[in-house]
Amino acid sequence: MNFTLKIWRQHDRNSKGKFVEYKASDISPDMSFLEMLDAVNRDLAKKNEDIIAFDHDCREGICGSCGLYISGRAHGPQRGVTTCELRMRHFHDGETIVVEPWRAKAFPVIKDLIVDRTAFDRVIQSGGYISVDTGSTPEASSIPIPKANAEEAMDAAACIGCGACVAVCKNSSAMLFMSAKVSQLALLPQGHAERKIRVQRMVHQMDKEGFGHCSNTYACEQECPKKISVAHITRMNREFIRAAFW
């Protein structure tokens, strides 16, 4: 397969970027999107040109490093996959593919297709955990948790922090990311001691980072590679109201 790529190139945080066109030829349909970029980079390296920088690591859809806006879709056209899992068989031969970094004020571009997502870490740091020191814990089976709750908490906990929800949101809102953590910990009895302060701090930090408001378009749920449901946003809203008025 052959493709024409229009890729966003930007030297560093402060410089202005632009789209540059590249050709990707002899691409096998079984290649992943990143392996296709590897092939382009190999040719660039041989020509002694600056290779296209993109974040990646595990290449099996779990580390959350990769994330490209591919022809108008976060992580490309397939549902429930990350960029590294996306195979080229989902594109047409000869297609022109536009590759952009996540765009949000809270995710500044560092270089080419790499953005700075440390805002997510700061949201978690503000309260996305249960405060427990090593060793000061009761026996694991002393807290029975209904299976349904544990499963739903797991659904929320599956978030890989890739940022696709922010990238696709018309308001660059981080509600799905933030709510997944709030919801996970609200579903488990261990998380109840801090539920009030947790949701308030996390919402506050999210706002401070410059993410937008949620206007319930539910696009995040559609683009989330782990298919995290907006029901977690519902629960988070409930937690927030509860924290404010009860």
């Binding site: 229009k6 022809s71 108008g72 879709r73 949000a104 004020k105 937008g212 319930n216 378009t217 539910y218």
Partner: peptide, 23 residues
């Protein structure tokens, strides 16, 4: 406020594939 959360918008957007027009 939401208008200010993205300095530069995407070149290609396909919002219709992920969210209803009304929203």
């Amino acid at each position: 406020l939401n208008k200010q959360t993205r300095d530069q918008n995407y070149k290609v957007r396909k919002p219709g594939q992920t969210s209803p027009l009304t929203s």
